[in-house]
Amino acid sequence: MAKQESVSGLVGLLEADGEALADEWVALVAGALGGRISRAELVRELRELYSALLEAIRSGADDAHAEGMSEVRALLTELSRSRARQGFTPSETAVSVLALKRVLEPGLREGAAEKTQAYLQLSRVLDDLALFTIETYTHTREDIISAQADQLMELSTPVVKLWDGVIAVPLVGTLDSARTQVVMEKLLQALVDTGSEQAIIDITGVAAVDTQVAQHLLKTIVAARLMGAECTVSGIRPQIAQTIVALGIEFGDIVTKATLADALQLALMKSGVELVAQQGLQR
């Protein structure tokens, strides 16, 4: 009984001045988005949303998470995702829902008690739906960020061949555990693919190492040995050397060199290549 009444109250609120209300809603949202979405698209989005919301409330759904609201949630999911992809802020996303509250406000001034009651009830539903858009927005952003991280990982970890039998991996930026693991697997596979017995891990461009990253480096070097290859670590900067010692990480008998050039020279020597400067050209 009470539910039936409240539903009709809500429907009445939304239907009262349907067309004008929708226009006002579109205008308000368009203002907030500063013309970065075409008016036609906005009209289409909000009209769909409006009729879905009306439909849901008619069917008796008075809660943002109710079964009957699934169509509304689907539309909002789509809206939030496209806002997130187009670089709108969370506020600019939620405003599409919240603006409807403001549009309905003027009707309250001459309103009766039941009308206020209905408004408050609708307002709760809209608040929840606005939170829903923000959540969807955040998930989408997280997906985008993790996809970018994957792409970055692919881009930023080249294994290069320096000489016949010598490969190197120049590490740049911040190393986290996951990225170090990927690089190291790539390095070991490259040993097999190129038949290289010497590998150089150059960490000149690395800002910092933590225990986990250092452990991954060490494990890789041991794994390379098991496969029959030798690794040299080059370009350890003073701060990083200090961290390694402070963390108590044992580098054991792992060969380290100050620069990539020194490491290459060592690797060449170990693979039996001799470098001789031509006479006359010698400085």
């Binding site: 190291m184 040993l191 290289s196 098991l226 029959g228």
Partner: peptide
């Protein structure tokens, strides 16, 4: 020895100290 096998052995705690290896 395959890379995946080598990584797994290290994680397992086996470094095969006295064994010589080749690619």
């Amino acid at each position: 020895m395959r890379p995946a096998v080598a990584i797994t052995l290290v994680e397992l705690g086996l470094s095969l100290g006295g064994v010589r290896t080749a690619l």
